[in-house]
């Protein structure tokens, strides 16, 4: 149900807009269509990249990688896996919780979760297409730094 919440919102807004101003709404739809089509050459390869990376970096492999490595090396592995992998939080969080139960450390999970959410190798192509190479590169660098800070604090605290 919540899967389609965005559709309800968009269609509701569309109907309201159409009621208010027909030509404006048709123009808006044209803009939507044009921009989504322009994005396709970047979005479709991303889909394939995610498919490939998820089949190689399966949940079992991620568990092994994050469970085995400890200390700094474990954290580095967790960063890299998090940056390369692409999974929604509702898959990643239970996976992380499960790993904690089986002996993985909090810093490694912190590094994994936050680089997974903020650093996107898979979506880099789309990001570059929007904001250009420099801005995209800088944003991802900041995201890497954010996950390092987070993992370091967790290392000291938990």
């Amino acid at each position: 149900m919540s899967d389609y919440a965005l559709y309800f919102l968009a269609i509701g807004a569309l109907v309201f807009s159409y009621y208010k101003d027909r030509t404006k709404t048709m123009k808006a739809l044209k803009v939507s269509y044009r921009s989504i089509m322009k994005l396709m050459p970047a979005i479709l390869p991303m889909m394939f990249f995610i498919g490939i990376s998820l089949s190689v970096l399966s949940e079992e492999l991620i568990s092994q990688l994050l469970g085995a490595g400890s200390g700094i090396v474990g954290m580095l592995i967790a960063f890299v896996v998090g940056a390369l992998a692409f999974m929604p939080s509702f898959v990643a969080f239970p996976l992380g919780a499960n790993l904690l139960e089986h002996g993985a450390g909090y810093p490694q999970i912190a590094a994994f979760v936050s680089s997974l959410m903020g650093v996107g190798i898979a979506s880099l192509g789309v990001e570059i297409k929007y904001f250009g190479k420099r801005a995209a590169f800088l944003r991802n660098t900041v995201a890497v730094f954010a996950s390092v800070c987070f993992a370091m604090i967790i290392w000291r605290v938990m």
Binding site: Y7, A10, I11, L14, A28, V31, S32, I36, I43
Partner: peptide, 10 residues
């Protein structure tokens, strides 16, 4: 993406 792009267009 499609609903997001509709909202963006609006």
């Amino acid at each position: 993406l499609p609903p997001i792009f509709i909202l963006i267009g609006l």
